[in-house]
Amino acid sequence: MVERTQKEVWKITPWIMLLLLLSNFVLMAFDAREANSEQRVIRVWAQTTADFVQSPATSLSSGISNYFQSISSLRTAQSENDILKQRIQELEIEVQNSKSLTVENERLKSLLGLKEQSAYKTLSAQIIGRDSSAWFDTSIINRGSLDGVKLNMPIVTNGGLVGRVTAVSPLTAQVALITKDKSGLGAVVGELGTSNALGVVSSNGRKELLEMGYVPGSVEVKVGEGVYTTGQDGIYPAGLKIGEVVEVRAGSATVAQQIFIQPSAKLSSMQEVVVLLYEPPPRPEFDKSLPNAAKKK
């Protein structure tokens, strides 16, 4: 091994620094891309390598925290048990009711001659990590391209829409939450087809709330109404629940309303999510021949 004097080290250090800075800059420039374009191979490699260490580490840390949580939750177990027993009885009655409703629904459908439309295929996933930088708020799930996950696939929980897949490696995928995603999604307040309150939902910087824009001031929107996807953004399918209106700042005939939405999904505490294996229908041919699309090429 070559021994260097302190002077030699001081001389060589700036050159090494420049070399490392340059290589990092090249990586950054290579990784910087449009939000909806294809992802870079280098990120897939980096994520796959990280997963081999992250998955065991996450399961270990969650195991330890679960152990302590289970100890603390023992205190409230008795009262919870009583509540749950009561809830089971209520649910049994509800199940009986819904069974009869399903039978009735089937009968009516057959009467109308409607065909059963299959919903999207789903894939359950677990959140194994959160963004390692304080500047971003993505989540990592334990499903990747080997499970059929692709870029921009929607992620939901039983509460509602969570976000979309922004990067996929063979074993994991990165999910951008709707509260942090800069790209907007098409939405409607109330029932799709009956409501005129169409607009675009995007994050507004306030961590827990979403903002809906472009809703004409002449359309009436009430606090507490549900907000659903329209499917017009080319990413999310129609009919997914985004959240509920919590605040409306009225506009006028020419100025759009400002609507604030509380997401239905519990984004800060969720541990399990569902990936909708949904691929949007291909864009029509005329879309590709737009002047902007030609310029990009």
Binding site: S23, L27, M28, A46, D137
Partner: peptide, 20 residues
């Protein structure tokens, strides 16, 4: 770079700043 691998940010951004 290891931190950037699992972040929504640019790959190499943390590497750049920490080297500096």
């Amino acid at each position: 770079i290891a931190v950037d691998a699992l972040s929504g940010g640019l790959l190499g951004a943390n590497g750049f700043s920490k080297t500096l």
